[in-house]
Amino acid sequence: MSKVNKKEIRKGIDLYISPSEVFTMEDKLKIMNAIQNTEKIEKKSLLPKILSAAGITSLAFIIMYIIIGEPQIDTSRELGEQVLVDTDKQPFTDTSVNSNQAVEKENPDSTSIISDDFDITPEEEIIQNTPIIQDKTKDVTEKAPEEVKQEAPVTQVEKEEVTLNFLKENLSIGMTTEQVYSLLGTPSVGDQTELWRYDIGTATDYSFISQGEDHIDSEGLINGKLKLQLFIRWDSNKTHTISVAYHDPADHYIDVFHRFQDGTEKTDSK
């Protein structure tokens, strides 16, 4: 055996890999094209997001206008006391308000927030003094946040339900994509691929650029910006493998629970 040195090893490895160039012009063009395509896809995917965001915002405004539209009317009452003084004029010009008044007259027992406030006829307004009107305005503004509060816990409960145990109990091998969709919604990554990833319990400022499709965000799990990271491997539109990564605060390790195709389960520590 002849003696080998660093240069010979280098040369030898180079020749072993390939005696000729391995990165050709064709490779370069492929990569350049892939980069251009990626850019196009990113630009395309931005447009629907912007449009949907704009749509949701508009919808929210419309809903807000319908539900709490009358604070504008209350403001007009507060700002313009001449409205209360001028008995010949209708205090409200909003037709929807007038229709509400009509309903209230027909149905005085109605207890809706809007009707409470609209229950005031122009005549009553003359009798009522301003503080009372202000109190009624307060009623509306104070009740509005309650409605929001009532909705918020529902979504929190829904989110809290997705725990490791929830996933263990509800995700099984052989489930279809539709079943998983209905259980967990759209995946964070991988919608059209063999591997789906769900980032569960993420902080508002959470972001993760994965270097590989099944790369676990250990950092996010450790710093608490991510509670669980679920990977679902598909085979013929059926769940093939389920893996859930989570941080075990007891030993500061990232544990990964696996459920395999044959039904066996295993938990790894990283």
Partner: peptide
């Protein structure tokens, strides 16, 4: 070449 054996 023998050195190639090493590389392998």
């Amino acid at each position: 070449d023998e050195s190639q054996e090493l590389i392998q």
